[in-house]
């Protein structure tokens, strides 16, 4: 990445942009094909299409948004920019995966003990207001 100030490169043909554009189209179509045109298992499909999504996001940041570019002679600004975006991506991944994991794990546990006597208490609670359609309001889950 060296000490590249925001200069040069911007004369002549915009190869960087063109390459970024072509790659993003290729990745988009490939992801679509993986998702709908193959018989891979769900896990593999998810891993591949999300891998492509992050790759494409990186392409945008590098090819179009010039995230590594510095406004001063020192490369402090690019380090702040990259560090900030990586941190934001980390926060985003924790929020999304954390939420999905916590909620999914919670429901699995709930389902498992659904018929155990211990949850009786729960069900009574649910049917208290709802009458015949107990459960649906309180838990919102039928899985």
């Amino acid at each position: 990445m060296a000490n590249k100030t925001a200069a040069n490169e911007h004369h002549g043909f915009p190869w960087k942009h063109l390459i970024g554009f072509v790659l993003s189209i290729v990745l988009t179509l490939f992801a679509l094909w993986i998702a709908l045109g193959t018989d891979l298992s769900l896990t593999w499909i998810l891993i591949i299409i999300f891998g492509f999504a992050f790759l494409q996001a990186a392409l945008q940041l590098l090819m179009f948004m010039h995230v590594t570019e510095n406004s001063t002679k020192s490369n402090l600004t690019s380090r702040v920019q990259i560090g900030n975006i990586l941190f934001a991506a980390f926060v985003a991944i924790v929020i999304v995966i954390g939420s999905v994991w916590v909620m999914a794990a919670g429901h699995a546990k709930h389902d498992k003990h659904n018929h155990a006597p211990k949850t009786e208490n729960h069900e009574n609670h649910g049917s208290h207001g709802g009458g015949s359609e107990h459960d649906s309001g309180e838990h919102g889950s039928h899985e």
Partner: peptide
């Protein structure tokens, strides 16, 4: 100009966090 651009990058970090909560809600 330099500070505004740097500041905007930091704002985009906040936008990533904002959208991540919406993605989390949707996926749950």
């Amino acid at each position: 100009g330099r500070l505004n651009i740097l500041g905007f990058w930091i704002f985009l970090g906040a936008e990533i966090a904002l959208f991540s909560t919406l993605f989390a809600t949707y996926m749950v």
